[in-house]
Structure formats: C-alpha cells, structure tokens
C-alpha cells in the first residue's frame, strides 16, 4: 500500500500494459530468440545426438559453411533458383494483386460473389491441395504450363498462332528477355493468382482507407483516370506495397526448395549442422533482399499521416 502512493497513474498503467505482452514476450524469448541463437550455434558445430535424448556439440568453426558452398552438390543451385524465382514473382504478384484489388474495389452487381471467389485461394492453400489442383488444372485449362515453349506447343492445338505475336513484338524491337518474362508470367498466371490472395486483401483494405475527398479534388481539378491513379491512388497505397512485398517474399521462401533441402538434411541425413547452415544462409539472403527492397521503396514512399 505504501508503495502505491509513489507510483503515478502512467507508471501504474504502463506496468499493467506490460502484463498484456508478457505471454508473448516469454514465448518470443523462449522459442524465437533462443532458437535463433541455437541455430547460429548449431551452424558452427557438429551435433551428435546422444542415446539418452540429449545432444553434444563440437565446435568446428566455419567448416559447415565451407562445405555448403564448396562441396555440397545442389545447395548453391537450389539457393540461386529460389532467389531467381522470388525476384521474378514478387513484382508480378504485387502488381497483379493491386490491379485485382482496384477491380474489386468498385461497386458492381455480384461483387460479393466475385470477392468470395477471389479469396478462395486463401482458403485452399495447402501443400496437398495445391499439388492436386495443379494436376486438375493441367487437365482442365490445358494450355497453362510453365515454360514458353510449352505454351507454344499447347497453343498450336488451339489454332492461335502465338509465334506470330512473338514475331510481331520482336520486330517492334522489344527485347527478347522482356517477351519471355511476360510469356512466363502468362503461363504461370494460375500460380500467381493462387499466391496473391492475402495481398489482394491488403490492397483492398488500403484502397478503402483512401479518403474519398482526394478523388473529389482530383475530379474537380480535371484529372483523368490515368492521372488519378498515378497521382492519388498509387502514392496512397505505396506504404502498403512494402507490407505486400515483405509478405510475398517471406511466403515464397517458406514454400521454396531450400526449406525442403534443409528439412531433408536435418531429418533424413541427421546432419543438423549443415541444415542449420542452409536455413541460416537462406534467411540471411531473404533478410538482405527484404532490407534492400524496403529501403528502395521507402525512399520513394510518401506517407500521408
């Protein structure tokens, strides 16, 4: 009781508030921070599981890292493909979901149904479901496949001459890399749609939070729809693009082959040290990419509040 007299209201409130986050804090320290430290420790040591259930660590320095980069057969290749896929997919998913969110933001008949359909991929995202859906999709939609050459094969049966269009664009002087990128994007459209459920939701929420008065002003000033998009909508959703990019990068890394490799190395070959190296390196690369993208986007971001 005596003690309470000396505490101000804010002080008391802050202590009470701290109680709200105590469970999380314990969990974070116990499961996340400790685990991160342990991962670092595992990666520089050789771990042997002792029969009693415990384990012993022998410090081996950077041996695991050197092995992963110099001697391991597939790690470098898998890492680079995963990163490559990510670099290709993230901008596609971001812009696609922004486009869809803008489509869904308008009032039109049957909007509820369309929204329900568009959020379906969020509900149906499971390894097993996605795998089986891939097979069903191949049989249903037919021409949708991974590489541009496969698209060509499939398109030949439908009577649409894709070759002709490619020729046309090439003769216009558009670089081949760009055409292949677009072709690849079109071919993987179903993957992109399936990966952009949450992102569409984020952008929808962002679009809803733009005050209507801004559009009114733009209209009064005589801005066209195109100008309104670039001068009002885009800057206003810019902060949320960071959220979306972060989410997409993390999400694509969780599904990537590096995770499978790390998992297999740990639990099939019992090589825990090497597995930690794989996880650690891929995490560091992810964080690096995230940091760079966020930095570059943030430089151009305009904060309304």
């Amino acid at each position: 009781m005596e003690n309470k007299k000396f505490m101000t209201l804010t002080r008391r409130r802050s202590i009470k508030g701290f109680f709200f986050i105590v469970p999380w804090l314990i969990g974070f320290l116990w499961f996340y921070l400790r685990s991160l430290m342990l991962t670092v420790q595992f990666s520089v040591s050789e771990l042997t599981v002792s029969p009693g259930g415990g384990y012993t660590l022998d410090f081996v320095g950077l041996d695991n890292f050197i092995y992963a980069f110099r001697a391991h057969g597939t790690f470098k290749q898998i890492l680079t493909t995963s990163i490559g896929d990510m670099v290709v997919d993230v901008p596609l998913i971001t812009f696609f979901s922004l486009l869809i969110a803008m489509l869904l933001n308008r009032e039109f008949k049957g909007r509820t149904l369309v929204r329900a359909i568009f959020f379906l991929p969020v509900i149906l995202n499971s390894d097993a479901i996605v795998g089986a859906m891939g097979i069903a999709r191949g049989l249903m939609v037919g021409g949708l496949s991974n590489t541009s050459s496969e698209i060509l094969d499939a398109a030949a049966t439908t009577g649409v001459s894709v070759d002709y269009y490619i020729q046309m664009f090439t003769s216009l002087g558009i670089p081949t890399i760009f055409i292949q990128y677009v072709m690849g994007a079109v071919g993987r459209i179903s993957d992109i749609i399936n990966a952009s459920g949450v992102q569409i939701i984020v952008f929808l929420a962002a679009l809803q939070s733009i005050p209507g008065s801004m559009y009114e002003v733009a209209k009064i000033e005589g801005a066209t729809a195109y100008e309104t998009f670039w001068k009002v909508t885009f800057p206003m959703v810019m902060p949320h693009i960071i959220t979306v990019v972060v989410y997409t990068v993390v999400d694509s890394f969780i599904d990537s082959e590096v995770v499978d490799l790390a998992y297999a190395t740990a639990f099939d070959q019992n090589n825990y040290g090497l597995s930690s190296v794989f996880s650690l390196v891929s995490t560091l690369v992810t964080c690096l990419i995230l940091g760079l993208t966020v930095y570059f986007i943030q430089k151009r971001t305009f904060y309304y509040n």
């Binding site: 996340y32 685990s35 991160l36 825990y272 996880s279």
Partner: peptide, 18 residues
C-alpha cells in the same frame, strides 16, 4: 515484425530439440 520476417524453417531444428 522479426517474427513475421524470419521464416519458420530457420528455427525448426532448435524447436525440435526444445
């Protein structure tokens, strides 16, 4: 935010051990 960003597979081994 770190919890969101760090992929779960980074900490899977220590969790398994824990």
């Amino acid at each position: 935010v770190l919890m969101i960003v760090v992929p779960t597979h980074t900490i899977m081994l220590p969790l398994y051990m824990t």
